[in-house]
Design a protein around this nucleic acid. Structure first.
Lengths: 336, 336
DNA sequence: TTGTATGCGTTATCAT
DNA sequence: ATGATAACGCATACAA
């Protein structure tokens, strides 16, 4: 069943059918009605491929994420899909994994599908070694790119992110101002965003005149580390004599690991140990006590990404970089 | 840059270029090399729309889920996307929400995009009122449909699911056999899967000769209910005089609500109260104590869905219904 | 092994 | 207001 079949049944040309389909004003009410009738009772649906070939678009956005099962990314996915759909754009998903090669392949695949734009989720997309970002620059030549929580100055690459440095700084200040002296910093990434957060931590200490103790920096490089493992490691740390009265984590799951440690070590939270996470994900409410965490405004970021993408696709001039400000959401794991 | 440009530069016909592109054996090594060279340094990428138009497929699967931010669904999304991609199929995502109209619109949209197949996630897709499923039957006529955790006998509709009844029964038996007498049953859905779980609960009581007390059935209908709210409601229930020494939940988040209740009521888990969740999601490890939960074999289900889809697309005869058996994963919220 | 010609189902341009 | 026809870029049957 194609446009020719419809045109025959309705006794008009395919051009007229096409006009009806596309709400062209240049068609008489009578013929429109006639054609619509045929379309409705034939169950005809225009062929999207043919349409795509002619218009060179299928109204599709490519969503690239390292791991769709990650709560932060899946939330972003949901926000983005919803907002894009409301603008009549479909989303094709590509979960690249963490390796550079895989991400590159993901971008390539989406490019070969002729998506109208791409959203790259997470700062992990930008490599420190700039020549490893060549594929991104290359891709940006053929399709607009938007980075969620990434910064990358490049033509046709747009960045929408949270000021992680400032947000982390405020979280650290909150700890200090509620009486914490030695804040253990837990982090999982040394990329752009990871470094910014660490800088925020350092800045807060400096502001309050507290000396930096490098032994309080605790890096977790392994990919899928369980909260139990994190708890274990903190116990080890304590045994080694490292003392701390607060934990600031670059990710909620690390903070929950700290809660596991507190439980095992018999330290009460927040009386003896304050804990702050990052992302303000749903499981901040699930753990015990409920976790104070940095809300990095994911919904606002996603909405802005979609607006930016639409603007770019309509040929408008759009800001290359938009920064939102995070906010500490206080729950039970910190003192007043 | 299209196939004609390449053919000119390489001094061959477009047919030859096409053959090179599609790894046809009927092309001499010399010409292949020549053509490949041109392709490589021109950055040419075949137009997917034109290809789709000719072959009537763009190797795409539509993934329909009520809510991509739900941990169970996002995990399924990740598994499915990965497995489909490894078979050279891309996934387009459609998060329909919970309403019938929205789901119907989602199916319609994917159909209009000419996806090669669709995966419908969650038993919520099947309505009790059978005429509300007409759109599914209709869609199945034009594209193979696979239901994740749903049962629907219909031509070209394939079902891959977990035996929720049996799994719930075994969870209840585990509670009974570790000394629990009065098991509060928390559930959130009255659809097919929801009813099966409830039947499993009833069956277990019957097997052990325990009388059914309807006041132990606790329904949570509201859509996005926080774990705190669940905890509150259980406190209310206790005040009303309902007594229970165990909680069996149809979803992990409800079980975590029960943990919140236990904390507030000062009842120790598992000594005074045993708790079992459902789905065995990541946050079973996050809560305190860690949650015993029913593992419903999501990865196996997803892998089988992809295999089934591939088989169907290759024209093979495939089983209409495949059932996996769930398993109770024991953690700290139940006794030995 | 290689080339020619046609079809895929639209949209859009140009007539009428 | 409507119709004829070209273009979109590829795969492929058939011819050479």
């Amino acid at each position: 069943m194609n446009i020719y079949d419809i045109s025959k049944r309705a006794g008009v040309s395919i051009a007229t059918v096409s006009r009806v389909l596309n709400d062209s004003p240049h068609v008489s009410p009578a013929t429109r009605q006639k054609v619509m009738a045929v379309i409705n009772d034939s169950g005809y649906v225009p062929n999207a491929f043919a349409r795509g070939l002619g218009l060179n678009t299928m109204q599709t956005i490519g969503l690239l994420c390292p791991d769709a099962s990650d709560p932060y990314q899946s939330q972003a996915l949901a926000y983005l899909e919803h907002a894009f759909r409301s603008r009549n754009y479909d989303c094709v998903l590509s979960c690249a994994g963490k390796g550079l090669d895989a991400r590159q392949a993901g971008v390539e695949l989406l490019k070969s599908r002729h998506v109208d734009g791409m959203v790259l989720m997470g700062s992990s997309f930008i490599e420190d070694n700039d020549k490893d970002n060549a594929y991104i620059r290359q891709a940006a030549k053929s399709v607009p790119l938007i980075l969620l929580n990434g910064s990358f100055p490049c033509e046709r690459v747009y960045c929408v992110l949270c000021d992680d440095q400032r947000a982390t700084m405020e979280a650290a200040l909150h700890l200090i101002d509620t009486g914490c002296k030695r804040i253990l910093y837990l982090y999982h990434s040394k990329n752009y965003s990871g470094r910014k957060k660490l800088e925020g931590y350092r800045a807060a200490l400096k502001m309050r005149g507290i000396g930096m103790d490098e032994s309080l920096l605790c890096f977790f490089g392994q990919d899928k580390m369980s909260v139990q493992d994190v708890g274990e490691q903190l116990l080890q740390l304590e045994k080694k004599g490292v003392q701390f009265d607060a934990v600031l984590a670059s990710e909620d799951s690390l903070a929950i690991g700290a809660l596991k440690y507190a439980k095992a070590a018999g330290r009460s939270v927040p009386e003896e140990l304050s804990v702050i996470g990052y992302n303000n994900s749903t499981f901040c409410n699930f753990c015990e006590p409920e976790l104070t965490s940095v809300d990095n405004k994911l919904k606002a970021i996603c909405d802005h990404i979609v607006e930016t993408m639409m603007g770019v696709l309509e040929g408008k001039e759009m800001p290359q970089k938009t920064v939102f400000t995070g906010e500490v959401t206080i729950r039970q794991s910190t003192r007043k």
